[in-house]
């Protein structure tokens, strides 16, 4: 079964169309990148899948169930983990505790007063940290980590609920170039190995073209191209958009006026 099938997704903010008839699908184990210039509607689309925004119309079918308009918590319960453009962690906790917190929530024990939190699900947390290569830092405060490592911890947190789908908003933003490649490789290998679908937005074209199975190009809320990386790269319309599709003529006229 298709893991994620989005169809006819629309969203307006006042008079601005942020998403128009957005449709795509994603299989288990597949990486799908949404790219596009600023204000293209990437985050809007993303947040409608994650539940942070309610679509005006359209369907978000997750493993056969329409989750459009459900609260983020409900969508998370159904197996969607997510990471943020600016890493969101619990800065007062250790690396392991960040993951343990996610596990505590996954097991429905947030409102428990009985046990000590620091001992709960510690082994499971360490396993997840092992997976992202952070086990050695388990007991360090997360606020002391390098940013690239924080992103790894965030990935482990997102994996704690055994998600079917990972939403990653600009996973490599704010990282040093070397760290970016490592994180994307890690993400891709975990996704393939665990058959998790990954939907991500990204500015770093190296990351996109090296790892995405499918690329979706959004401009002004509409999909202007989608397909395999090579197809998208060769698409003339995409190229034009990236070099500035608006005001080309105008700029040329201005230039002539200047000469």
């Amino acid at each position: 079964m298709t893991l994620l099938a989005v169809s006819g997704l629309n969203k307006r903010f006042g008079g601005v169309v942020a998403a128009r008839d957005v449709a795509f699908s994603l299989q288990a184990g597949e990486l799908l990148a949404i790219i596009g210039p600023n204000g293209a509607g990437k985050s809007t689309t993303f947040n409608m899948v994650g539940g942070q925004l309610r679509p005006d119309s359209g369907q978000v079918m997750l493993a056969g169930e329409n989750v459009a308009g459900l609260a983020p918590r409900a969508i998370w319960r159904r197996g969607v983990g997510r990471t943020f453009q600016i890493a969101q962690t619990f800065v007062s906790m250790s690396v392991a505790e960040n993951v343990q917190m996610a596990l505590i929530s996954w097991h429905g024990r947030v409102f428990s007063f009985r046990s000590r939190a620091e001992t709960l699900y510690r082994l499971e947390a360490l396993d997840l940290l092992d997976l992202v290569g952070m086990r050695g830092d388990a007991d360090r405060p997360v606020r002391e980590l390098a940013y690239g490592d924080v992103k790894r911890v965030e990935l482990a947190v997102a994996l704690a609920s055994q998600p079917k789908l990972l939403l990653m908003d600009e996973p490599t933003a704010g990282m040093a170039p070397k760290e970016r490649a490592q994180l994307m490789e890690l993400t891709a290998s975990i996704a393939r190995q665990r058959q998790i679908g990954v939907l991500f937005t990204e500015h770093d074209m190296d990351a996109v073209f090296a790892h995405a199975d499918t690329i979706l190009v959004l401009v002004r809320g509409e999909i202007i191209a989608s397909g395999k990386p090579d197809e998208v790269r060769a698409n003339a319309r995409v190229k034009q958009v990236y070099l500035g599709d608006m005001g080309v003529e105008a700029a040329m006229r201005a230039r002539r006026g200047r000469a």
Binding site: V248, A251, R253
Partner: peptide
């Protein structure tokens, strides 16, 4: 587009006044 043209003219006018400009852009044509 018509506004972009005015922006371009504005930058050119600034240069004509002797101003330096550091212009961040994605739009290569502009």
């Amino acid at each position: 587009p018509v506004i972009v043209e005015q922006m371009a003219e504005a930058v050119i006018a600034m240069k004509a006044e002797g101003l330096a400009v550091l212009l961040c852009e994605q739009n290569l044509h502009f």
